[in-house]
Simulated assay, not measured.
Amino acid sequence: MAFRKLAGKLALAAGLITSLGMSSAHALDKITVAYFLEWPTANQAAQMDKTYDEALGLEVEWRAFGNGNEMVQAMVSGDVQIAYSNGFVPFVVGVSSGAPIKLVGVAVTYAENDLCIVRNDAGITQANAKELEGKKVATPIGNVTHYKLIRTLQHLGVDINKVKLVQMNPADAAVAVVRGDVVMGCAFGGALGRMKTVGKPLMTGAEQEAVGINTFDVVNVTDSFAADHPDLIRKFLEVTNQANTAYIADPEAVYGKIAKAAGMDLEPAKEMIGNFGFPSNEEQMSESWLGGGIQAAAKGVAEVMVSAGGLDEALDDYSPFIDASYLK
């Protein structure tokens, strides 16, 4: 399973970092932040304006990744200090496997922007979803999209072990769906629009939320960066909060910057970000989020992944890897 390979890589890399003592408190002149293209978020206006650079007093390099597992691996290797809008599942799988990272905030909430699209000519709906058994389904393995797929199929009575999952990042999944290489593709971001030209969602985001399948991305940092530069994390989250507030107050003023940073045309970016929610720092510290809700959700996600064979073992407690102090 891809999960076990990931777990092995993360555990080995974490051990190397620990043994080599790579944590250092020296002054920085640059940090690298992981993000996704075709994933427009309110903070990207600040990214374009270099507000982060000014507030943190250093160069902030924004590096695009294809999925959350790649982000976690880059953090474990020391190439990335902050992962913005990383998937919750890659975080849970990462810390379960020994990755030296922690969750310090919620980046975005969403539902309609992370879906599984069935080709129209497949004739598969929620009513006969068991017909997916034995067929190929494209999905990025080990992230929120994969987790939602598992939960969705469980809800519809489909045996996930009988579905032929094919590891594909969103862009590749969209190509496979359009060409007919797979009967269904699960993805996030701009790839969904391309898949919808030949198919429809197996379940909409609203339908998923109604049965308890919630979707959100998080802000992760490495343990060493948190220990050595807590002030930079606080400033990063403060700038993000200010950008979120500005977007909510006047979205038209920043749509253009956000679309450019996301690598999207204006109208698709506006449509997608309209389905996003950006909780304030105060909201994130509440019991629904970092005040207890996320800790419980992490345990639940881990147990689902274990039951699906994607994770060997869940941790007893995920609270040591979740820290709301940087939001204050």
Rank of each mutant, 00 (worst) to 15 (best):
M1H: 14
K5P: 12
G8H: 12
K9N: 11
L10M: 15
A11M: 10
A14R: 00
G15C: 11
I17D: 15
M22Q: 13
V33T: 03
V33Q: 04
A34F: 05
T41A: 11
A45Y: 07
A46L: 00
K50A: 05
E54M: 06
L56R: 02
V60D: 05
R63E: 15
N69C: 12
N69W: 04
Q73P: 02
A74Y: 07
M75L: 15
D79Q: 14
Q81R: 09
P90K: 07
V93C: 09
G94W: 00
S96N: 03
S97F: 02
P100I: 10
I101E: 05
V104K: 02
Y110E: 04
A111S: 13
C116V: 13
V118R: 01
A122L: 03
T125Y: 06
Q126K: 12
Q126N: 06
Q126V: 11
A129V: 10
K130A: 12
L132I: 13
K135V: 09
Y147W: 09
R151I: 03
H155F: 06
N161D: 14
K162G: 05
K164M: 14
A173S: 14
A176N: 08
R179S: 13
G180S: 13
V183K: 01
C186T: 12
A191R: 05
R194P: 09
M195G: 00
K196W: 08
T197V: 13
T197L: 10
M203T: 03
G205L: 14
A206F: 11
E207G: 08
E209S: 10
E209K: 11
E209G: 02
N214G: 07
V219A: 04
V219I: 10
V219E: 02
V221M: 03
F225P: 00
H229F: 07
L232C: 06
I233P: 02
K235P: 11
Q242P: 08
A246F: 07
A246Y: 04
A249F: 07
A262R: 06
E267F: 10
K270G: 11
N281H: 03
Q284E: 03
W289D: 04
G292K: 06
A296T: 14
A297D: 09
A298N: 07
V301M: 07
A302L: 04
E303V: 10
M305N: 00
G309M: 06
D312W: 15
D316M: 09
F321M: 06
A324Q: 00
Y326D: 03
L327C: 00
